[in-house]
Design a protein around this nucleic acid. Structure first.
Length: 617
RNA sequence: GCCGAUGUGGCUCAGUGGUAGAGCACUCGAUUCGUAAUCGAGCGGUCGCGGGUUCAAAUCCCGCCAUCGGCUCCA
């Protein structure tokens, strides 16, 4: 097994405009009692201000979130960003009035009476959900109050008028249910001091600079084209290098672990997905069926783009009578799938409509399930380690027993969920549970990562499935000659190549490790007369399987360096009279700056070694 | 899909009713240069698309498309 040598730190940003200043710790709300109070109270002040400016606005909920707070209102007119300015002004007035924040305990009946008196129907619903007595109310002076558990600061003047800001408006559904009323949400942030607020804003801007959509464009890795369609990325030559390297890397790992490669088509008869249950439970997420004529359309006969690969791999399993000796059978494919995601969901590479899953389906006996599941988790963790991905959380994605979006028996679900639970316990893997996060056919162990905007995305996944083997009537011949039903494990360490690369770009801030860099080395001639020498060195590099090129632009060295740095090329090699004479290269790396003159043979050796061992130059 | 914002040359952006601009990139010329931008000239835009208002629309109005921030939904 190969691992990256542990790197001390992320390669530093050499560009003066990108130097990361020493970061002071900015606490999250959950880590700070003081911030909880500040943000809670600021959201109340905002609600009071909104109701003053928009008397028809009704209040709902206004909790703190990790970097700030929000408050949802039911207002006849949606708020616009222009309204935020006025609301902010009004909030400062409230702060300056130094209103005491007073906690009051009242009985349920009293709370109900008062809410009815001010005609706030949403609050009444909230009250009905609060368990136990007494009910607490927080007043801002004697003008405004809200049903709230607290805690709060003691006086509105405890909120620093220059340490909060209103950030954005958004629609949000009441109770998170798209069938209920759409409310108007205002997001804000509040801190202990103006300095903290400034640091928070600075950090947000910094995060934007490593946004994979921005870097993907700058580094020329992928594009979207209007005539092609939304959510359908096109991979440029450079991006394709990264993709292929990741594929090759995983294919090698899988080869070592007994996986068998397969290839399956992108479309299939809709009938296939009726057997699997996709058509019944997943139709909304699929591109519409292609029918040859109206009659076929009416009889629901036609072809669909595949949203998943499992039914295809199942057909390969089914194509022969399998023996227990054949199991576990691990069929693997980089399978491109298409899902008709809602238009508002699409974004960059993290949410697209066509993506490639590093998919595999393992057909195992019930006895083999636990061990095979552990093997898969081991593969996934080793892949993350090689890619230097550390910031993830493991989620047990179980079904919501009250929902009807799942197929299969309670027994099958219980068996599958307990298998996953056993595995994480055996491994001592820290995890949390996500009820209602299961796939429609089975529970999952998911690996969740964060993007630059703190949004969470699922990458790797392992799923235990007793249902599809049942629906497709899968069998194997057991030792005693009887027919038995295998269990399936669905798994994808990357999840999707697209999403993985999006996360990797942000994780690396565009600085791919040498083995993944689209261009690993660029030769920089100080004058045109050194071009032939540079070209000859590049040929030697290419002969060793290295990705190298010469800058032939004829610009001055300073410009060549600048461009190579902007392209985030890990190794730059300066070539001039001195180098030609001594058969050397003056090396400058993005990670470590100038390294001085090094003989060509040594440079070649070191590049090759780093490339093959996932290391640095 | 829903709420809000945005859409001007390849890229980043200025222009808010009166004949489309800048920097970078690109091409050409001069310079032959040693660790983050050499100088000059040139090329390049149906101002997202369609409709409307107006003597006149990048600019105002309507519809659509796409992107961005959320919600809902998910690798």
């Amino acid at each position: 097994m190969k691992f990256m040598p542990a790197k001390e730190s992320v390669p530093s940003q050499a560009s003066p405009s990108e130097e990361p200043s020493e970061k002071s710790h900015l606490p999250k709300t959950s880590e700070s009692e003081s911030l909880k109070k500040i943000r809670h109270t600021t959201s109340h002040i905002m609600a009071m201000a909104v109701q003053k400016l928009f008397p028809k606005a009704q209040v709902t909920i206004g909790p703190w979130i990790e970097n700030g707070f929000y408050y949802d209102f039911d207002n006849p007119e949606p708020f616009t960003e222009k309204d935020l300015k006025a609301i902010r002004k009004e909030m400062i007035k409230i702060i300056n009035r130094k209103l005491p924040v007073i906690r009051e305990e009242v009985s349920r009946e009293e709370a109900e009476r008062r809410i009815k008196a001010i005609n706030e129907p949403y609050k009444l619903e909230i009250l009905a959900d609060i368990q136990g007595d007494p009910i607490t109310i927080y007043h801002l002076g004697d003008q405004w109050w809200d049903l709230c558990a607290g805690p709060h600061v003691e006086n509105t003047a405890d909120i620093h008028p220059d340490a909060f800001d209103l950030e954005s408006v958004a629609g949000a559904y009441w109770r998170g249910d798209e069938n209920k009323a759409q409310l108007q949400r205002i997001y804000g942030t509040a801190w202990e001091s103006p300095e903290q607020l400034a640091e928070y804003k600075r950090r947000k801007e910094e995060a934007l600079r490593r946004d994979h959509r921005k870097l993907g464009k700058e580094l020329g890795l992928f594009i979207f084209a209007d005539p092609v369609g939304p959510g359908l990325p096109l991979w440029t030559p450079k991006g394709t290098v990264v993709r292929s390297l990741l594929e090759d890397f995983l294919k090698q790992e899988q080869l070592k672990r007994g996986y068998l490669p397969v290839v399956t088509p992108h479309i299939a008869r809709v009938d296939l997905f009726k057997i699997s249950g996709h058509w019944q439970k997943y139709k909304e997420d699929m591109f519409p069926m292609m029918a040859e004529d109206e009659e076929s359309e009416q009889h629901e006969q036609g072809f669909v783009l595949k949203p998943m690969n499992c039914p295809f791999h199942i057909q390969i399993y089914k194509s022969e009578l399998r023996s227990y000796r054949d199991l576990p059978m691990r069929l693997a494919e980089f399978g491109t799938v298409y899902r008709f995601e809602q238009s508002g969901e699409l974004g960059g590479l993290t949410r697209v409509r066509g993506f490639t899953v590093d998919d595999s389906h393992l057909f195992v006996t019930p006895e083999q399930l636990d061990q095979e599941f552990l093997n898969v988790v081991d593969l996934i963790l080793s892949v993350f380690k090689s890619l230097q991905l550390k910031n993830f959380r493991a989620r047990l994605s179980f079904r919501d027993p009250d929902s009807d979006k799942y197929i299969g028996s309670d027994d099958a679900w219980d068996k599958a969920q307990s298998a996953i639970r056993r595995a994480v316990e055996t491994l001592g893997l820290p995890h949390f549970e996500g009820i209602g996060e299961a796939a429609f056919y089975g529970p999952k162990l998911d690996f969740i990562f964060q993007d630059v905007l703190d949004r969470e995305w699922q990458l790797g996944t392992v799923q235990v499935d007793y249902n599809l083997p049942e629906r497709f009537e899968l069998e194997y011949v057991a030792e005693d000659g009887t027919r038995k039903r295998p269990v399936m494990i669905h798994r994808a360490p990357f999840g999707s190549l697209e999403r993985l690369i999006g996360i990797l770009i942000e994780e690396y801030a565009g600085d791919f490790p040498l083995w993944l860099a689209p261009i690993q080395a660029r030769l920089l001639p100080v004058a045109e007369e050194f071009l032939p020498y540079a070209k000859q060195v590049v040929e030697q590099m290419q002969a060793l399987g290295l990705r190298a090129e010469v800058d032939t632009s004829g610009d001055r060295l300073g410009k060549l360096i600048r461009n190579a740095e902007k392209d985030k090329i890990p190794v730059m090699a300066v070539v001039g009279a001195k180098e030609v004479e001594s058969n050397a290269l003056s090396i400058r790396t993005r990670a470590s700056g100038e390294l001085g003159a090094i003989p060509v043979s040594e440079v070649l050796e070191r590049l090759k070694h780093a490339n093959e061992n996932y290391g640095q130059f």
